[in-house]
Design a protein around this nucleic acid. Sequence first.
DNA 1: ACCTGAACACCGTTCAAGT
DNA 2: ACCTGAACACCGTTCAAGT
Lengths: 223, 223
Amino acid sequence: VTTAPAKRGRPPRGATQLSRQSIVAATLEVIDAKGVAEVSLRAVARHLGVDAKSLYNYVDGLDDLLDAVAEEFLSGLRFPDRSGDTRQDLRAIAHAFRDRAHDRPEAAALVMTRQLASFEGLAPTDRLLAILRAAGMSTAESVHVMRLVLAAVIGMLRREVSVGPISGTADPAAVSSRESALRESGLPHVAEAAHALARFDRDAEFDFGLDFILDAVAARLAR
Amino acid sequence: VTTAPAKRGRPPRGATQLSRQSIVAATLEVIDAKGVAEVSLRAVARHLGVDAKSLYNYVDGLDDLLDAVAEEFLSGLRFPDRSGDTRQDLRAIAHAFRDRAHDRPEAAALVMTRQLASFEGLAPTDRLLAILRAAGMSTAESVHVMRLVLAAVIGMLRREVSVGPISGTADPAAVSSRESALRESGLPHVAEAAHALARFDRDAEFDFGLDFILDAVAARLAR
DNA sequence: ACCTGAACACCGTTCAAGT
DNA sequence: ACCTGAACACCGTTCAAGT
């Protein structure tokens, strides 16, 4: 009987071909739709209409898949051409990370929890080194500064991503209840600064932190 | 028969009392011994010689337990008395975080993945604000700088923790194979800096980054 | 070459039943 | 008041059997 669907064995030709790439793409869709916490081989397989074990033909288990997703995330970074202005070019890299993180906040949260062993994510590193070298730093110093800049940017984005979903600001009721809780925390300086602490303007906060770092880089270059 | 152990119901008096605190402590032991990835309600319960469901009498599920562990981690931060020197006092806070992270690296990795909603972890915030206010910053500015400093420190520690277990440096063979891989990456500046990129001196890197940040704070104060 | 059935050893969590 | 048995709906992963 030819009409009975094959429940096992090689898929009928014409069926959607599985591939490492399509699996990674499906994983990103699951992450975007349901959040990082909901990701699993079985969930991705369901999304693809396939058995979870089939994924093992293209992917070396869950960890390998998540690494691939992190690489896919990083490979989506888009840097504009360099202008030659150190400050502007460094800023562009930080904003490339931030734009990507806003694009796919759940995937960004995943990336920040993973240590990539592969060399796929080196493009930003090369860019940063290029800029710092062109500005006059030694290779050794440029590596140090590059690491610090990346640490600071990732640290800032970590907070931004975890501060809640994309929505710019939380609702006013939550803010003011948080503010009064801070004011009654018993910690004098926390209480004093409760107004500012209860609020978080993503754009302003990022701009402030980035300028802070860029000022420090400029000062170091001027020495 | 009184000798038959009760397999159900209230535990015999004299049995080790379960409590939220003992559960958190046991969780930290499991994390230290087997790593964050191995933590589960069932594993913690096994460690305590108890059924996993019993934990629900003290803890509101796994997420709540992990939040409690994060709080416990933060409450273990030890700050020395303030000296009055801004730079030295800021440095002490950064090192308090770092010491704690080295003490319990696996727990530190957990903390960095969680967004704490509670107010238990505000002591470092208050300390930082106190120092910055005493140095002459406005409350608004001190909040911005405090956030930036924390982001940078956490970003640096994130890398340190993920760079591998406590061991200072990886074995030379791995370093040199990594170096040659970087040299042949096809990225010119990565290749040029391969020597430095393949190495990571935790102490030197942290000191560099921290000095960098502290210089920037000092520059801002001097304006 | 690629997929799945059967199977195993895990999870978190609810709820009723026990003492 | 506190614990567990039974139960459910999940996981990742191996391996042999299918086409």
